[in-house]
Nucleic acid binder design. Structure first.
Length: 426
RNA sequence: GCAGACGUCGCAUAGCCUGGUAUUGCGCCGGAUUUGAAAUCCGGUGUCCCUUGGACUCGGGAGUUCGAAUCUCUCCGUCUGCGCCA
């Protein structure tokens, strides 16, 4: 959510962003209109309350003097104030909640360098890393390999739950746990605090961290308690300090979250999203930073650097992409993706997303840090380290061998108790 | 699930019974003093609208009242005990 002060002081800045994104800016004027009217009504209410307060004080004085006549006469003067105030308060409440429900739908201001474009086709490749593996055979897709090695059982998961569910079995399940442990340790070594968050959140906290439309398309609701299963540990980790004023000495807060992630994945997806590429549940190791505004772009680079170093250490070939205006979404001000090379599929596909959300989530969450001259919203950043299901796909496809076996990346071997090759499941 | 206690400004704490401007300490910010620092002293330190100024704020909401941190109801959370349980 954008600071209301930006609407008042510099609405053209928001309008400029809207035109970059190619969306209609008339709701900006609606916010301004509602804000003006709210402030008028608010002023009127304050004036009425002022006279009520002074009357209350005078009654107190008169009672101390024992002057009952005076008390009665003041009571007569202010008897209708209560209902007047009440109705104006209702009006003010209506105006500000309308104002803010619109404000909640307005996306974050973009970093000036975000490339302009309508959709993901216009994302800009920044760099490539690692080597594309060279095969003397036709590389298979991950879904062929997991099926022939019986590492994943999709039909039976479909039977007991539904589509896009899976049993992960045998050596691939071990590799999944190895990836979690290795990636978490990788970031712990860089000063990040390991956090295992609640896997459900209430509506209020969740609205603080995500686009409202995600409640329809992304999150699972839990009834009868009205909770939502988290779509990523970014959400509980970022919302953790909701409604708090953070002491500057405690910043930056650097965390590495590990959790299952739940996603409804509503909508049609292509055939290339078969196997375990796009599923309703996966584990993710996530980096989250809460920091002072002036430090956030530096930390954005740090998060991207961590992700690159981690993927380099796994020996995987990938590229970094600068996400354009049409693909960046509501919350981020700037976003980079890592896209891993999938030799079986013959394309680069998204495995990491690294965002600076500036003060957008912090404003929604009322998350500030102490600052002389007025507390200020913090900045929040997040980046995938590894989403295990997708990292497994990248490893399976890049480390596959002629006979369909998969070599374990060197750094994961200790976590596999020395095992160097994934064996087929019985 | 049952019973009880509790929730006050960043933290801690008083006020609640008996309704009438939210106390004090710590921390933080500014200033004085100092060669510098410590110590000490003074002032400030939540939110909103701002026009001198005003209004709001005691977990959230509602009620009673001229007036609610204080009384009533309700919801939420924390803690303790009992029960159940990996």
């Amino acid at each position: 959510m954008l600071d209301i002060q930006i609407f008042r002081d510099d609405p053209d800045r928001i309008r400029a962003d809207f035109s970059k994104r190619g969306i209609d800016g008339s709701i900006i004027d609606e916010v301004l209109l509602l804000d003006d009217r709210w402030r008028e009504v608010r002023f009127e209410v304050d004036q009425l309350r002022k006279s009520r307060n002074s009357a209350a004080r005078m009654i107190s004085e008169a009672k101390k003097k024992g002057d009952e006549g005076e008390v009665k006469s003041i009571l007569g003067e202010v008897s209708n104030l209560g209902s007047k105030i009440e109705s104006l308060e209702e009006e003010a409440e209506r105006l500000i909640s309308k104002r803010d429900s619109i404000r909640m739908q307005i996306p974050n201001l973009l970093h000036e360098a975000v490339p302009t474009g309508e959709n993901d086709q216009k994302n800009v490749e920044i760099s490539r890393h690692g080597e594309s593996p060279i095969f003397n055979f036709e590389p298979k897709t991950h879904n062929e390999l997991i099926e022939m090695n019986r590492w994943v059982d999709l039909p039976r998961a479909g039977k007991i739950t539904g589509s896009r569910q899976y049993f992960l079995m045998g050596d691939l399940a071990r590799l999944e746990m190895a990836l979690q442990q290795y990636s978490a340790d990788f970031l712990i070594d860089r000063g990040y605090t390991l956090v295992q968050p609640p896997l459900m959140m209430n509506r209020k906290a969740y609205e603080g961290v995500t686009d409202l439309s995600d409640f329809e398309t992304v999150m699972y609701g839990i009834e009868p308690d009205g909770y939502y299963l988290i779509a990523t540990s970014e959400h509980p980790l970022t919302a953790m300090m909701m409604d708090e004023v953070i002491e500057p000495a405690n910043l930056p807060i650097k965390m590495v979250g590990v959790s299952p992630c739940f996603r409804r994945e509503v909508g049609a997806h292509g055939m290339s999203d078969r196997g375990i590429w796009r599923v309703h549940q996966f584990t993710k190791v996530e980096q989250v930073i809460i920091c002072k505004p002036e430090e956030s772009w530096g930390y954005h680079t740090e998060l991207l650097g961590n992700a690159k170093d981690l993927w380099d250490s796994l020996g995987l070939h990938y590229r970094v992409v600068d996400i354009c205006t049409g693909d960046i979404g509501t919350v981020a001000s700037r976003k980079y993706d890592l896209e891993a090379w999938l030799p079986g599929a013959g394309e680069f596909k998204e495995v990491v997303s690294c965002s600076n959300c500036t003060d957008y989530q912090a404003n929604r969450l009322k998350m500030r840090y102490r600052k002389s001259g007025g507390n200020e919203a913090v900045h929040t950043l997040n980046s995938t380290a590894v989403a295990t299901s997708r990292a497994l796909v990248a490893i399976i496809e890049q480390y596959q061998t002629n006979n369909g076996a998969v070599i374990v990346p060197d750094v994961l071997i200790p976590w596999m108790r020395g095992k160097k090759i994934l064996e087929p499941n019985q």
